[in-house]
Design a protein around this nucleic acid. Structure first.
Lengths: 132, 132, 132, 132
DNA sequence: GTGGTCTAGACCACA
DNA sequence: GTGGTCTAGACCACA
């Protein structure tokens, strides 16, 4: 079951956050075809947002061909986003965990590490980056 | 000089993207107190957005005490967000670069790696995460 | 300028009617890339429906890559649906006009002619049809 | 026997599609008074929809005085919608078939032809149409 | 001024 | 009971 979290005050629309988190779960293989997303009501109870906001996110996912609503039953995953390589990430996860630990030892917090990762990814994938 | 990029269609408001990218540059030490942000006009020429959007982002940064406008001169950084540890990240960067390479060898793309990083960070920092 | 008509009581959701009519105009070449759709407000004044209903239709068209909203400016056509053959339909239109006239002489009304067209198209394009 | 087809994803409610298809068959003379509609169960087996959806469509037809349920026997047509002229449409059909062929030769597909027919009918019957 | 987001709430479609 | 449509209205994002 996906657990959504909304960061109000991040400036990112709530429905966009729901879409992004769902896609991440699809990418990580936490959600696979046939899985049911939480009903709008369940999400509403959990997050105290309006059901229409949830439905908007689900419609967005539907229009991307990732999920499918079935009236009276719920909304179901129809497509995975997990690459084959996602099945075996134990080593990568362990390495990353170690890296985070080192970063913390160097006095960096979560947001610093995220900035560093984005920066290195930007450089690696050759996008301009925020740098000089 | 910060180079901004706007991802239209990401669903994240343009001014929020400018704020986030500026903060990231402050965090990474690419921008330090005394640096001048690009003028609204420069950003407009680069990104084809409305000057008001840039000004809104700068006002947001100002209200967080990070920058300061000086009439006729521009907007200047007044505070860094770089932890001391950010000065010496060469090793962390090299390790991360190797990790990305391994991920790619495993068939993972940028977005897969980002999802993995978010997931491991969530677990490490003990937030629910998208998993069950 | 597209003129929308909503047939309340047809059972077809209003936003679906707007989408279908827009696509028809795109197919007929009445709307071409660069054209601006009427603003939500204009449609509202014309049809007495809620602006959100119009926006929903426009968002659907956007998600199909046919139009693009530009904040503060309006919603613009980005893609045509007109086949090259649509440029020269004068003869086809004249023939069809004659056909309608004959149908009327035979005592058939608009809905009868529509039923006949659907039936012949179904048979021609080999779909089951409502017959037998 | 009417063969129903449901186009999920057209945005038109399933029960409305059943009603429209039944009326079309009544108009074309494929269904005449005394004919029995398929039972809800038959339709359900064919289309994988809920029996309530079929019953809703039949109730709608009943309220328009077109059909009548007879307990234990089924639902029967009580009224035709076929104009006298519908008995002799062979010539109209042949002409239309030729017209479709010409349209196809001009590179137009089914949806283009449908758009053209709607447009010419709109103009003929003097409704605004989608044009300027 | 134009479009976008979100809410609260009524009512409908479908299972 | 679940999702879908539509409304009315507040407020925001962008030009």
């Amino acid at each position: 079951m996906v657990l959504y979290r909304i960061d109000r005050g991040s400036g990112v629309p709530a429905y966009v956050q729901l879409v992004m988190q769902t896609k991440r779960a699809l990418r990580l293989g936490y959600l696979v075809p046939g899985d049911r997303l939480p009903t709008a009501k369940e999400v509403v109870n959990e997050l105290a947002i309006n059901p229409n906001t949830v439905l908007k996110a689900y419609r967005e996912l539907e229009s991307e061909g990732l999920v499918e609503p079935r009236a009276g039953l719920g909304t179901f995953v129809t497509k995975s986003l997990a690459k084959p390589g996602m099945a075996e990430t134990e080593t990568l996860r362990i390495q990353l965990d170690g890296w985070i630990r080192e970063g913390q030892d160097a006095g960096l917090g979560r947001e610093d590490l995220e900035a560093l990762v984005s920066d290195v990814l930007d450089i690696y994938f050759d996008k301009a980056g925020d740098s000089e």
